[in-house]
Design a protein around this nucleic acid. Structure first.
Lengths: 341, 341
DNA sequence: ATTGAAAAGAGGTACGTTCCTCAGATATGC
DNA sequence: GCATATCTGAGGAACGTACCTCTTTTCAAT
């Protein structure tokens, strides 16, 4: 005999199929006592729901929307590709995905996009946007209409989102600091660069970076964060100026994007080779930089994991299923020249 | 209208359901011309096979056996747990798993276990065993009876196995070397320890380690590998002797198991704090060692990935489906104190 | 004892695919 | 034009679960 089915459970528990179904799907109309009897039968026979048959019968369609930053962000593009891949593979079947791209630095446009969603036929929403009061309010409104909301990569801690899928940015910053401290051969100064300190994850990375630096590596002096505001020219200028003024610079930690510009500026200044450079997100240009020994390590999160995890969490939220936090914890990956995937 | 079904394809191509089914499942009995017509209909409508319905109807049962090393190996235990988890989740449905544990250092017993398998009702086999001629022969015999064979963690390169699921051990060794070189503050000597150099992955790790050390870090001198043969007493002795004889020792790279013994020996000698220690596999004791700053980094492979990947590959081999190599490549993870999962 | 709501049973259809049989059509070689 | 082999069609039964309607039972409150 193969795997037990609902029929076997019904027989074992001495109830009808309908009752088993009610218990398994947590529908009302069953006495506590009977629920327990069915549960016991399930445990005794080791019944596992056949998800294939269940999904087939259920004919459930999940409508999910993903809001990602627009523009040239290689990371967002990679994430969209990963979603597309999950969609074509069996991971996301019976799921309809809509990916919307919004301007990262324009809260107004983000809110407009959120308002444009047809909440009637939306089951879940995944958001990767900076934290602003307007966005928090919009999320509240969306939650009120019963849509599951997940934040992606960058959290909205004080909003009513159901779950956050992404890495702990403080821990990521701490990891960067540990690498910087361990890699540094001498004492000196370390520069921290980012797009903007207004984004939650940059702030948290800096926080974590400082924690470890202060505790474990006080031979290294951390300079105030420089912000590029996503502007290559500005990035170029601030890097050139800093390098000229700081002869004791031994490392650079880049918490945001614009790393290609950063590296070319350092290359032009002739200091790149002597510096320990750490960046985030494994983009094609960072792969090249690792291979060329221009970047010592890249701290990354697996976009495939992010995509699959977000989909899984959204689906479980829609079905009121529990979420296994351990499984959804996205790892902080350390990528060096020799363990490039 | 929702997703197109086989019925839609049949209508679109002007053939019957049976013919569509024959084409989709590459069964014989269909003219080239008709095959093309069906293919076109599939492309035109964008038909995607509903895997849920397919699996349900197919009623395929996959019978897989896993051969893992027995004993106290925390890694093998974790792998078995991961398999168990995959089994209870939907990842492994319609799959029957048998996990057999064999003595690692006894090729004879391994072969006996392999011979005891009922090949008639076995669809796939995953092996994590050291490479010996006897094992290679046994694999040949198993392959002859049409069973899919996958090697796990440690490859059997000259056998007739279908696929290897695990990390590139040479690259893992190179990663360790890169870390050792970057972490080292001064020049000195580095010790390499392992269970036995007769196992393929230890050999490869050493190979990779030497490559990078030779090329990039010739300020560090690598000592000949020490083998513990899985014997704690021997481990203790050889470590004590080496530490006493080598005052310029700055790092230890442990390629195998027995790390708890290794660390306690180093701790007793009073040199642990000054050493950069690198190990493999994130066991509970290595987690602790990372937190206590006794181990600088652990190079690990995700056992969950290994388990899922092995199952996926075995299933695809059974169904003659293609294997997406990129998806099955297991990452070499670098775990530090701050990015512990 | 009667009532009525809650709980449980009985029986059914549907989901999309696989795989089976049997009959009918078409092509191929003589 | 006939036998033979190869295609194709038609129809249907399964797979295990979900979910529907309609009855029947249970049990406590009156």
């Amino acid at each position: 005999m193969g795997r037990p089915t609902v029929h076997d459970i019904a027989k074992e528990a001495g109830v009808s199929l309908a009752t088993v179904d009610r218990v398994l799907n947590a529908r009302p109309g069953v006495r506590e006592k009977t629920i327990a009897r069915v549960q016991q039968a399930v445990d005794r026979l080791g019944y596992i729901r056949d998800t294939n048959a269940a999904n087939l019968a259920r004919q459930r369609q999940y409508n999910f929307a993903f809001i990602l930053p627009e523009g040239s962000s290689q990371f967002a593009n990679a994430l969209q590709d990963a979603l597309q891949e999950a969609y074509t593979s069996q991971v996301a079947d019976r799921t309809h995905l809509r990916v919307l791209r919004v301007p990262l630095h324009n809260p107004h446009a983000i809110v407009r996009t959120l308002r444009s969603l047809n909440l009637e036929r939306l089951d879940g929403l995944a958001l990767m946007v900076p934290e602003t009061p307007q966005v928090r309010d919009a999320v509240s409104r969306i939650k009120d209409s019963g849509v599951a909301v997940v934040t992606l990569v960058s959290d909205l801690p004080n909003s009513r989102r159901d779950f956050f899928v992404g890495v702990d940015s403080i821990a990521a910053g701490r990891t960067a600091a540990l690498l910087m401290g361990r890699f540094a051969k001498t004492s000196g100064e370390v520069l921290v660069v980012t797009d903007s300190l207004r984004s939650r994850d940059s702030l948290d990375r800096r926080l974590g970076f400082d924690q470890i630096m202060r505790n474990d590596f006080n031979n290294l002096k951390i300079l105030p964060s420089l912000e590029s505001y996503g502007d290559p020219d500005r990035m170029k200028r601030i890097i050139e100026r800093t390098v000229a003024q700081r002869p004791r610079l031994i490392g650079v930690y880049s918490m945001g994007s614009g790393n290609t510009t950063l590296l070319s500026a350092l290359r032009n200044s002739g200091t790149l080779e002597a510096l320990t450079v750490l960046t985030h997100e494994l983009t094609p240009s960072m792969r090249r930089a690792l291979k060329d020994d221009e970047v010592a390590a890249v701290i990354a999160q697996n976009v495939g994991h992010l995509a699959r995890s977000a989909l899984r969490v959204l689906r479980n939220l829609c079905d009121n299923f529990p979420i296994f936090e351990a499984q959804e914890r996205v790892r902080i990956e350390v990528i060096l020249r020799e363990n490039l995937p």
